[in-house]
């Protein structure tokens, strides 16, 4: 039987290589070896994704590499995640997040990467997609009792929606922390507009999210 360290290394390597088949195989081996699925996710798949995130932040890899890594990650998660709720250790439960690209914005690559990083960080994420109207965010946050709301806008022309949404969300969703992100945005605008957090990229967004929820 394969030892756990080897399986974790294979899970991590499969994600870094963007190899869905290898991730599936390693995840099945983790199940076969009786590993704690949550450990396999966090110390195997998520560790590989975290390393890819580090490489992205250092300019050693780019969005295409992150995206194929995320495909491998989700291939492994498809096998391991259903087992987590049945395991003795239970899942890391860091909270519930709602995410979407605001009305008028149809770009969702960055939003999808943030979603993935939040998921591997232990949040349950409800993805509303793109071109999302204000009321849809409010309804979903109330429905799922969201701890965190993440708003994305990529275009200089659509960030205005975030500015308009924020005071409404602050009034209607007092228990929900709100983060914003997207290429034209920055920390200064996040502060001026009253967002609780800002992430320059998906990796930073996940770190800020955890800090907001644990702070």
């Amino acid at each position: 039987m394969l030892d756990e360290a080897t399986i974790l290394e294979r899970l991590s390597r499969a994600v870094m290589d963007g190899d869905e088949d290898a991730a599936t195989q390693a995840a099945n081996d983790a199940v076969g070896a009786g590993m704690d699925p949550q450990r396999a996710i966090m110390e195997g798949l998520a560790a590989g994704m975290a390393e890819m995130g580090r490489l992205y932040e250092e300019g050693e890899c780019y969005v295409p590499e992150l995206m194929v890594s995320s495909e491998a990650l989700y291939a492994g998660l498809a096998i391991l995640r259903p087992l987590v709720v049945q395991s003795a250790s239970g899942a890391i439960d860091r909270g519930v997040a709602v995410i979407g690209a605001v009305q008028g914005d149809i770009h969702d690559i960055g939003k999808n990467l943030v979603k993935m990083m939040l998921e591997v960080s232990g949040l349950a994420v409800h993805d509303l997609g793109r071109d999302v109207e204000m009321d849809a965010f409010i309804d979903e946050c109330m429905k799922v009792k969201a701890d965190l709301l993440c708003l994305s806008a990529l275009m200089t022309t659509t960030i205005i929606a975030i500015k308009d949404y924020l005071p409404v969300f602050k009034a209607k969703l007092p228990g929900t922390k709100i983060m914003i992100g997207g290429a034209p945005l920055n920390q200064r605008l996040a502060d001026e507009w009253g967002a609780d957090g800002y992430g320059e990229n998906a990796m930073e967004a996940a770190r800020v999210a955890i800090r907001l929820l644990e702070g």
Binding site: Q103, G104, T157, T158
Partner: peptide, 13 residues
């Protein structure tokens, strides 16, 4: 074409 609130440009649907 950008007809909705916050739309800034033509987008591919």
């Amino acid at each position: 074409f950008p007809a909705k609130k916050y739309s800034g440009a033509t987008v591919v649907t």
